[in-house]
Amino acid sequence: MLTSGLLFYILAAAIVLFAIAVVMSSNPIYSALYLALTMVTLAFMFFMLNAPFIAGVQLIVYAGAVVVLFTMVMMLFDLKKEQEAFARGKFTGFIKIASAGWLCGLIAGAVYMSSEMIVSGSKAVSENTATTKNLAIELFTNYILAFEALGILLLLIAVGAVSISRIKGGTHA
């Protein structure tokens, strides 16, 4: 039990540190690399939470595709160090940080206050309910409409992305 607690704290600390590094790095490429690290660490955490398939998909989709795309686009731009990385205005910046911290505190406080109401620990997903097969059965029966709607969304997105980034008059950039 102690090892799992230790593992949780190590992973949580790593996630928070990498996420802060994403926001604070002035060079966006370092941000993207830290984002990849965050995603990989989160995948480990999903694995700890008995969701191995989600962890694998997290690696494939986020770390393997989305963040690679981010990194690639930024290397294509070859941005020099940003002139103004952060939004200007000390007062508004302070207000932004304060309100974000306030929100975080509000959520944490709400979680803490309502911990009596949350069903906790007792009914952890057992090995045989969390299989990929059950996931698939659930996805393709109860959520089939949402699944198909997502297919349409992806088609629209593909068309939209092509039409936005298309150069008029030629096929290659």
Binding site: G5, A12, V23, V111, S120
Partner: peptide, 28 residues
């Protein structure tokens, strides 16, 4: 030693806040 749901929810809240700060503060 005991990691409960609350731990994960608080971590999630912190991560959400960091992401929100990224959107609010950065210009890129």
């Amino acid at each position: 030693g005991h990691v409960s749901l609350e731990h994960y929810l608080v971590l999630s809240a912190i991560l959400f806040t960091i992401g929100m700060l990224g959107v609010l503060l950065r210009k890129n």
